[in-house]
Amino acid sequence: MDKTDSRSRKRHRGQGRVTLADVAKAAGVAPITVSRALNSPDRVSPKVRARVEEAVEALGYVPNLIAGGLAAAGTKVIPVIVPSLSILTFIEVIHAIGQRLESAGYQMLLASTDWDLDREADLVDTVLGYSPSGVILTGLRHRPRVVSRLKGWGRPVVEIMEYGESVIDMNVGVDGDSLGRAMATHLMARGYRRIAFVGSNLDRDYRGRQRMQGHQSALEQAGFDASWVLEYAEPASYAVGAQALKEVMAMSPRPDALHCSNDILAAGALLEANRQGVAVPGEVAIGGYLGLSIAEHLTPRLTTLAVPRAEMGTQAAELLLARLAGGDPERPRRDIGFTLVEGDST
């Protein structure tokens, strides 16, 4: 990127929407050529199309899908982009966000990435075209064009679920490494030594992989074998947890404790242990993560790491609303924390 491009990006950051005319100037073509390159790319030469695409990327241009003053002012819509709309983890956060936004006169627009960062990038392009007042999205890992566009967009952005140093704007979440370490440390303190981590969909659920890495680091630092891992490609379900328990009980030697990457897997393993007559925690201990309500209704009660998901959603909405009101929110980066809820399964 040359100095002119850098100055253009700085000029537009926080000062409203980059226009089609801005793109045309940066690309050295007429506005109508930019329009053709974006809407009918076969009507322009590859060389011109490449120049336009380079200018679009450099400036963070998002096409206006809403005309006139409404687009300039921003609509009363807040897109919330999450990996899944079927997992209770996200449903509770979404519900809290929606309640707080609606109380302030805003409407939530939901979108699901299906754990796909490329799909997230496409969704961001789409929702920004409708001129929302702000955006809430999941995690701190995004495609570079998502980061560059949202940083130069000039409206509030909140990243949720994961807490970290490198953020687009504002952040409310929890540290995955700390979560993994906490459960592993608890199990070691209870006397377990062959502790297996059970995870699912970890190739796409990188926050689950962060918890696994924290788990392994804690074991290694204590001098224990951290290689006990059961990893499944499919999303978390009771069936996957049950399968993990079956596989563990067939091992020789076998783990004496299971650290499941969420309560769904842990519940499936515990229910399967009950079906097989396997004593929990006598023969195998089981720990989870999330603090789902099912944990306290299982027999034995499940030990889990509880994250205040509704509070996370509320705080994310409040950060965004504070910025929309022209304020500078206190603590724009917030670690929401977690609690070890010790049941009878460990």
Rank of each mutant, 00 (worst) to 15 (best):
R149E: 01
R100Q: 14
T126H: 01
G176K: 05
A182E: 15
G105C: 11
G173T: 07
Y130T: 02
R194E: 12
M170H: 08
S112Y: 04
G139F: 10
R193N: 12
R194C: 06
V172D: 01
S178F: 07
V135G: 00
D125F: 03
E162V: 09
Y163M: 06
V157P: 03
Q107F: 02
E165W: 01
A196T: 14
M108C: 14
G139T: 06
G134Y: 07
L110Y: 08
G199L: 02
G154Q: 11
P156D: 12
E165G: 03
E120D: 01
S166V: 08
G199P: 03
G180W: 11
D114M: 09
S200F: 03
S131L: 00
R149C: 03
V147H: 00
A184T: 15
T126M: 10
A196C: 13
L123S: 02
M170Y: 15
V167N: 10
D114N: 12
P156E: 15
Y130S: 05
E102Y: 04
G173V: 03
E165F: 00
G152R: 14
D118Y: 07
D177M: 09
M170R: 14
L110G: 14
Y163R: 04
G129I: 00
R149M: 02
F197S: 05
G154K: 09
A184M: 10
R149T: 11
E159V: 01
D175M: 09
Y163N: 04
P156Q: 11
L137F: 05
R119M: 08
A196G: 03
I160F: 06
G176Q: 08
S178V: 08
I160L: 08
L137G: 02
S112D: 14
R100Y: 09
V167H: 06
D169I: 04
S133D: 02
A189N: 14
F197T: 10
M183A: 11
D118S: 10
I168F: 02
E102A: 08
D116K: 01
S178G: 12
I136Q: 05
P156M: 07
L140N: 13
Y106H: 13
V135S: 03
D125C: 04
A111G: 13
S178N: 06
G199N: 09
S178R: 13
L123E: 01
G191M: 06
Q107W: 02
M161C: 13
V135W: 07
T185A: 05
R181N: 06
P132Q: 08
Y130C: 01
L101F: 04
V127W: 00
D122M: 12
R194Y: 07
T185Q: 14
L140M: 10
P132A: 09
R100I: 07
G173D: 14
G134I: 08
A104E: 15
Q99E: 15
Y130L: 03
T113E: 13
G152L: 08
P156I: 11
Y130Q: 13
Q99R: 15
R193G: 15
R193H: 11
S200M: 04
